[in-house]
Design a protein around this nucleic acid. Structure first.
Lengths: 112, 112
DNA sequence: TGCAATACATTGACAGGCGAGGTATATTGA
DNA sequence: TCAATATACCTCGCCTGTCAATGTATTGCA
């Protein structure tokens, strides 16, 4: 069972920002890290990942630069900005709030 | 601070089904119950609510019937079906799984 | 009389996820 | 040697769910 698109929607930005908070990274590695973290249970689709990078860079939450690989495929690295950091913390709070609300609503309240 | 559309997306069906599991009800009342449950912090938009009813009925997860109000505005009542019940439990399990995964991913893992 | 509350419904715009397709380099093993 | 696999990036267009705006009708109350 994998996570439905609609359940992940709205969290991709936060997930990417959380990864970048650990240090600069590039698309492929970020997705690998996510897969490792979830024991292979989850990974962002490539199209989703790169769409998100474009969006986040346009918002000024991340900036990108090309790595100086002398061998192998080229890598575009991403770095979180101060604005990105601020928004990450905001999104995290929003998640925590909505998690509680959803948790309350998707259950029947026989026990209340 | 209210819940962003993208965070609620994918949960409306589960929320509605959870309400109907408590007994038959109609749109307006279901939304009232949700508002009460969350102390006014959250409510589904009408368009979202009625769109969801159409979708759920088409799926065969709920059925509807007109109430026999002799006074006041007419009410369309909804009832959860056996298929709806099964899917509710499935959606609940999916939420519990995705909640854990998202929770893990939106945080930095300094503590791990 | 006119306003708020109750109650339902539709339309069209919008945004994000993603399947499908594409490019290029390096390694490995049959 | 050369095909397959892994690494690494990217875009187009479809699909789906949310929601603002707008409309209808009834009832009660000031």
């Amino acid at each position: 069972m994998s996570i439905a698109s609609d359940l992940i929607r709205g969290h991709t930005d936060t997930i990417i920002l959380a990864q970048l908070l650990q240090g600069d990274s590039y698309g492929y590695q970020i997705n690998r890290a996510i897969e490792v973290k979830t024991n292979g249970k989850f990974g962002l689709k490539e199209a989703t990942l790169y769409t998100a990078f474009r969006r986040l860079e346009e918002l000024g939450w991340i900036i990108s630069y090309w790595g100086d690989e002398t061998t192998g495929a080229r890598r575009r690295y991403y770095s979180i900005t101060e604005l990105g950091r601020e928004n990450y913390y905001r999104l995290l709070r929003e998640w925590e709030l909505s998690r509680e609300i959803i948790d309350q609503l998707v259950r029947t309240d026989r026990s209340l």
